[in-house]
Structures are given as structure tokens and as C-alpha cells.
């Protein structure tokens, strides 16, 4: 009765694990990670964007042998890391404007090519900088298939300027510009954009979604993207404790619940076709994800108008994702 020994104590779901071969541990488990985004930055306690950016750029640094340039759009990630004269970046880093990160990165990539350098280029920004103001530049970068990996850190609103709605804000969410008042409180249903699917529609070499809750998954996707050339896009869900009205220690739990509820499907696509999805491990109703967030508090007040309908519609969105990406197809993912 021999059994194959697996790391059941934690499987490979944790960041490291002393029982695991070092090549199976994450970049983050290494004392030699580059800490591309280091201490002393001014992000809020428990900021998902700060975490997601370090996860992603450290993985990219490893993949690029640290020969990397990052172009940043305006937004929290830029503001909290580089208040003059400080910087938290331990990577070549460049900021121009709110809406032009993709275009600047295209330019940097072109310059590298001209100079005959193998330096890799990443552009990064928030959801506002990506799905709204920077969308034209981004779509152009995709369409030209410029050799840039664009990473969107999606915290579902314009956080840096005080939580205004973006086209990535989910329906029913309260923001400064979609207050929880009236018959249909919060953000309007049926609006917004799904940028990962729009990116896929450009037929670019690689598109993926990730969260800060699944580090192995996130690093694998960044590494895969860095292994390809041409226009690539990764969309990372990064909870914002301030804007979402959530406890600072819940950032990772909320990312996990977003995935487990089906609201945020994890997948990869190449040249417009979905190539892989990450199955849900322990499915939860959307309410479990929404409830700890004050931006959805009005959905849980018994007398609130339209609350149940809104919850049902959000659940229907999750169910649709589960169907579309076949998120329950695999048995529980024991990895």
C-alpha cells in the first residue's frame, strides 16, 4: 500500500514550503527576489495593488534576468511609490501621463530594438488608466502587436483620486460617483467593459487574468507572458481596502472569494482562444464575497430597494462566467 508522497500539509498552495523542491517554490519565496517594489512606499495598509505589482514585476524580473524597463500610468501605484524625491522601485522605471503608458512603452520597446538591446518592456497601470483614459493607446499597442507586456492592476475604481467609478467598477458597487441611493443604488448594471475579453478580440499572442490570492498561478502567467514576444496583456484583480471598504487583512481573502464565487474567472488565452482556466476549488455564493465589502453594504440591508434583485443579477453574472469558462469542470484542484 505505497502512496505517492505529496505535500498535503499545504500542497503547493502556499508561497513556499520547506518540503518543496526550490524550483517548485514561488519567486516570492526566495530571499533573492528582486523586491522591485520595496519598503517605504506609501500605499495603504493591506494594499492589493502594491502586493500585486511586487508579485508581477518580481516574476518578470526573474524571467528577464533583471533586464527590464517598466512604464507606469498615473494612479495609486505611481503616486504611492514615487513622491519626489523618493522611489520604491528597484527596476528601471518611467512615468509619463495617466493615459499614455501603453504608447510610451511601445516607444521604449522600439528604442530598445533600434539600439539592439534585448531589454524587455512592461507597461502597467490601474483600471482607470487602462480601461478608460489609456484605452486608445492600449488598443493601438495591441493592434500593432508591439513587444510589450501590459499589466492592469484592477481595483475596480479610480482609487487615487477618491474612489470614482471606472468602466471596471462592478454593478451595484458604491463609489464616490455611484452613490448607494435611489431605486437602484450603486453602479448601474449592464455597463462597463471586460478588458481581458477585449484584449482577446485583438488576437494578441497572450491574455491572462490573475489575482493576488493565487501566487503560483500569477507567477506562472507572468512567466509565460515573458516567454513570448509581441503584445501581451495580464489583468490582475487587486482589492483596495480603502475603496472597497474592507479590512486591510482581507485583501487576499477577498481575491480568493472573487475567484471562488465565479465573479472573477481565471484563464489564459492565446491568439484570441482560451487555452486554460483555473477551476474553482470550493465554490461560494457571491454574497460571501460581497458581504465583507462596505461598497456593497446596501445589498445586505433588509429594507434596501432592489437589493435581492441586485444580488440575483450578480449571482447570474458569476454563474455565466462559470459556464463560459467551464470553471467547475475539473474535480477539486489538488495541485
Amino acid at each position: 500500500m505505497t502512496q505517492t508522497v505529496k505535500f498535503y500539509q499545504t500542497g503547493t498552495l502556499t508561497v513556499g514550503n520547506r518540503l518543496l523542491d526550490s524550483d517548485k517554490r514561488t519567486v516570492q519565496a526566495s530571499r533573492n527576489r528582486s523586491n522591485a517594489l520595496t519598503c517605504g512606499h506609501r500605499a495603504c495598509q493591506g494594499c492589493g495593488e502594491a502586493l500585486g505589482a511586487r508579485y508581477a514585476i518580481d516574476a518578470a524580473m526573474r524571467a528577464a534576468n533583471r533586464d527590464l524597463v517598466c512604464v507606469n500610468a498615473t494612479g495609486c501605484l505611481e503616486v504611492f511609490t514615487t513622491p519626489y524625491p523618493e522611489t520604491s522601485w528597484q527596476v528601471a522605471w518611467l512615468h509619463s501621463l495617466f493615459g499614455n503608458a501603453a504608447a510610451v512603452a511601445s516607444g521604449v520597446a522600439a528604442a530598445m530594438r533600434v539600439k539592439g538591446k534585448a531589454t524587455r518592456v512592461i507597461a502597467q497601470g490601474g483600471d482607470g488608466g487602462t480601461t478608460d483614459i489609456g484605452f486608445g493607446c492600449l488598443s493601438g499597442m495591441f493592434e500593432r502587436n508591439d513587444d510589450v507586456l501590459y499589466i492592469c492592476y484592477d481595483n475596480e475604481a479610480y482609487m487615487n483620486t477618491g474612489v470614482q467609478r471606472s468602466s471596471a467598477t462592478p454593478p451595484a458597487a458604491r463609489t464616490a460617483t455611484t452613490p448607494a441611493v435611489g431605486a437602484a443604488p450603486g453602479n448601474v448594471f449592464g455597463t462597463g467593459k471586460n478588458l481581458p475579453r477585449i484584449a482577446m478580440a485583438h488576437g494578441i499572442p497572450y491574455v491572462a487574468t490573475a489575482t493576488v490570492a493565487d501566487l503560483h498561478d500569477l507567477e506562472a502567467k507572468v512567466t509565460r507572458a515573458m516567454g513570448l514576444h509581441g503584445a501581451r496583456y495580464i489583468h490582475i484583480l487587486v482589492p483596495c481596502p480603502l475603496g472597497w471598504g474592507a479590512a486591510s487583512h482581507d485583501t487576499i481573502r477577498l481575491s480568493r472569494l472573487a475567484v471562488e464565487s465565479g465573479l472573477f474567472p481565471l484563464f489564459e488565452a492565446e491568439h484570441g482562444e482560451v487555452t486554460a482556466t483555473t477551476p474553482i476549488r470550493r465554490r461560494v455564493p457571491v454574497a460571501e464575497y460581497l458581504k465583507p465589502q462596505k461598497r456593497f453594504a446596501h445589498l445586505f440591508r433588509p429594507d434596501a430597494p432592489g437589493a435581492q434583485e441586485a444580488l440575483d443579477r450578480l449571482q447570474a453574472m458569476a454563474d455565466a462566467n462559470i459556464r463560459r469558462f467551464n470553471l467547475l469542470s475539473a474535480e477539486e484542484a489538488v495541485r
Binding site: 500539509q9 513556499g16 514561488t26 502594491a50
Partner: peptide, 26 residues
């Protein structure tokens, strides 16, 4: 070995690197 590894190590660090990884402030 399999059985030992089923232990959750309740209340005692087993060096999974999670804290090291998840800190947004490094």
C-alpha cells in the same frame, strides 16, 4: 511520511513562506 505530512502544524510556524510572500510592504 504521508501521514506525518497531513499534520497542519497548528499554531506553530512550519516555514511555508506565506507571511514573507503576502506582505505588501515587504
Amino acid at each position: 511520511l504521508f501521514e506525518a505530512r497531513r499534520c497542519l502544524s497548528c499554531g506553530n510556524c512550519f516555514e511555508c513562506d506565506n507571511c514573507f510572500g503576502v506582505c505588501p510592504d515587504n
